[in-house]
């Protein structure tokens, strides 16, 4: 099992390396000169040249790439072209804020999704199942910003005015110091992510409930609760983990829209700003960050698959 996980890990490392090359090459192709962007239109050629020298912009591509890659390993993401400050310092708070949002959304949507999906499968064809599948289908069909706007209308502007619709943290304080501001963004993300988890969970659970070993467990006199938890769930989880991974990975990118909608000071906003300002270093850092989230969540899903399948663990399947 350890061997399998190590193999997946090394594959992930290779993928990240390839992504880093693509990101670097892609940002090189962007129009504009970082030195010009930092100093502005009035900068003298001498000052531009000096800054280029300082930022190693005159070195060959390969050398610049290796320098940048080396920096990634020690947490040095370079210098922001727009602000002149360190990228790491600029993004630190933003990343923390976004991670809070994602973690909360995941912590709510995964268990609730699995529960509702299982409930739906157990009540197949009855009213509860129809309600759950119907609602999740509608939610899955709505774009994230529509859900966000609907929630704002419902809870903070037109119908009830109980929750804040924008995030405003005074400088120096963190977003999570104001929990009520987190409710709507988190709720939006939950409603976007959860339908897929519910539907996948329902499908795999129905399949597992029809299997021979579940019937056998019932014929052994195992109480229904234990049949579900011990015999059915472990088999239904692995395919759902893949869907959860895709959803979480989507969150890393999809969070941009939701953050923009609620003026939430996370990486999404930072990315939008960085692209507008041609802040190459920040774009590179964020692109790598989002790629890393993709790779990590997929790796986690694979590990869940390996742990729940003894055939993989004991090398029954090669």
């Amino acid at each position: 099992m350890l061997g399998l996980i190590l193999r997946r890990l090394s594959i992930s490392a290779v993928i990240l390396l390839i992504v880093s090359m693509l990101v670097f090459v892609a940002t090189l192709l962007l129009p504009g000169d970082p030195a010009q962007a930092i100093l502005g239109q009035q900068a003298t050629p001498e000052r531009l040249e000096a800054l280029r020298e300082q930022m190693n912009l005159n070195d060959p591509f390969a050398q610049r790439y290796l320098h940048w890659l080396g920096g990634l390993f020690v947490g040095d993401f370079g210098v922001s072209a727009a602000s002149g400050g360190s990228v790491a310092a600029l993004l630190g708070d933003r990343i923390a804020a976004s991670l809070v949002l994602m973690a909360l959304a995941a912590a709510i949507s995964i268990p609730v999704g699995i529960l509702v999906g299982t409930y739906s499968a157990l009540r197949r064809g009855r009213a509860g199942d129809h309600a759950a599948t119907g609602i999740s289908l509608v939610l899955a069909a709505l774009p994230d910003f529509v859900i966000g706007i609907a929630l704002v209308t419902l809870f903070s502007t037109t119908v009830f005015t109980v929750l804040p619709s924008v995030t405003m943290a005074p400088p120096g304080e963190q977003v999570w110091d104001y929990p009520s501001q987190l409710i709507l963004p988190v709720l939006t993300l939950v409603l976007v992510v959860m339908p897929y988890i519910i539907r996948m969970m329902r499908t795999t659970m129905i399949e597992v409930l029809d299997s021979g070993y579940v019937e056998m467990a019932r014929l052994k006199g195992v109480p229904e609760r234990q049949v579900i938890v011990r015999h059915a769930l472990p088999h239904a989880i692995a395919p759902v983990a893949q869907v959860v991974a895709i959803q979480l990975a989507w969150l890393a990118g999809g969070i941009v829209v939701v953050e923009f909608l609620f003026r939430y000071p996370g990486v999404g906003q930072a990315l939008v700003d960085a692209v507008t300002n041609r802040d190459v270093q920040v774009v590179q850092a964020l692109a790598m960050l989002i790629a890393a989230v993709y790779v990590v969540v997929n790796l986690l899903a694979d590990i869940v698959g390996i742990v729940t399948n003894p055939k993989l663990r004991t090398g029954g399947i090669r």
Binding site: E215, M216, P310, K311
Partner: peptide, 21 residues
């Protein structure tokens, strides 16, 4: 009673044994 005083042997053990137990 099931599995206690009345028990069942399934047709296809490959499908009826829980592969994860």
């Amino acid at each position: 009673l099931r599995g206690g005083s009345i028990s069942y042997v399934p047709q296809d053990p490959a499908l009826s044994l829980n592969p994860a137990m």
